[in-house]
């Protein structure tokens, strides 16, 4: 039996305002196995992005636990990491591709520099090696190599997203988190980015969690899928199974919408 790479247990995030509470996600539990792509699908506001933000520690969860095999032998709750460990998790073990490339990239730094940042954080100290490695990642994500020393601020949306993916892959993280990576892109560029991610995934066996409201993306990329609604996981299983034989009324509705 293969050990899961990541175990998430009873993850809950409640946003508290004046006199009211918004439950973003509640008691979300799942496992991710090495080399697997887990999809999380659901409508806007279902809490799928919150799960990702909690895992990447952009957001502090209200309660719950997550265990990464390589973090204290998987015995320590990732959410209890101190600041230094949290930074280590974010720069060495996990990476995130945001919906908006502006969030994941520093637009004032060259494309190569953005990728290099993760290598520099891992104590790479030879410029020629850093450049070789960064250009390697940029080639993999089909960013023209002659634009390596240009600023991503002047790139198209699709190319910014590809730079962001290159950055996320740099330093070979154990787990890549992808948040709505094609939502801001037009259809033809979407197809290109999806092909790219699928290609990278099959070639390098990256473990990933991909969040999307788009069942097409999930169908293409995810091995297993969680369906979320109103902050809860309503159904989970193999992607094919869920798409062909949805059990929960909400999933049935979702699948119907697409097929019609």
């Amino acid at each position: 039996m293969v050990e899961p790479l990541l175990r998430v247990r009873d993850l809950t995030k409640i946003y508290s305002g004046k006199g009211h509470h918004i439950v973003a996600c509640e008691d979300v539990s799942f496992d991710v196995y090495p080399g697997e792509v887990l999809g999380i699908v659901g409508e806007s506001g279902s809490g799928k992005s919150t799960v990702l933000q909690c895992l990447f520690q952009d957001v502090v969860p209200t309660s719950g636990a997550a265990y990464l095999t390589s973090f204290h032998e998987g015995e320590r709750n990732m959410f209890e990491a101190d600041r230094r460990e949290r930074r280590e998790l974010r720069t060495h073990r996990m990476s995130m591709v945001y919906q908006n490339p502006r969030q994941g990239l520093n637009l004032m730094v060259t494309a190569g520099g953005n990728v290099a940042e993760r290598l520099l954080a891992a104590d790479w100290r030879r410029v020629s090696d850093i450049r070789a490695k960064a250009s390697d990642y940029l080639v993999r994500t089909e960013v023209p190599i002659e634009r390596m020393d240009d600023f991503p601020a002047f790139f198209s949306g699709g190319m910014q997203q590809r730079v962001q993916i290159a950055k996320a892959l740099a330093n070979s993280p154990e787990l890549v988190l992808l948040d709505e990576l094609t939502t801001g892109l037009d259809v033809s560029v979407q197809a290109g980015v999806l092909d790219l991610v699928r290609d990278i995934q099959s070639r390098y066996g990256v473990t990933a969690i991909i969040v999307s409201h788009d069942l097409g993306v999930i169908r293409l990329l995810a091995d297993r899928t969680l369906v979320m609604k109103d902050g809860h996981v309503v159904e989970s299983g193999l992607t094919d199974q869920i798409l062909e034989d949805p059990q929960h009324p909400y999933t049935q509705l979702l699948v119907n919408c697409v097929t019609n």
Binding site: R87, V109, G113, A116, L120, A121, V127
Partner: peptide
């Protein structure tokens, strides 16, 4: 002791 940004500035300078 997170000096990746500092190193990045030096890298950009070299580039």
């Amino acid at each position: 002791a997170d000096y990746a940004r500092m190193w990045l500035a030096l890298y950009e300078d070299v580039v």
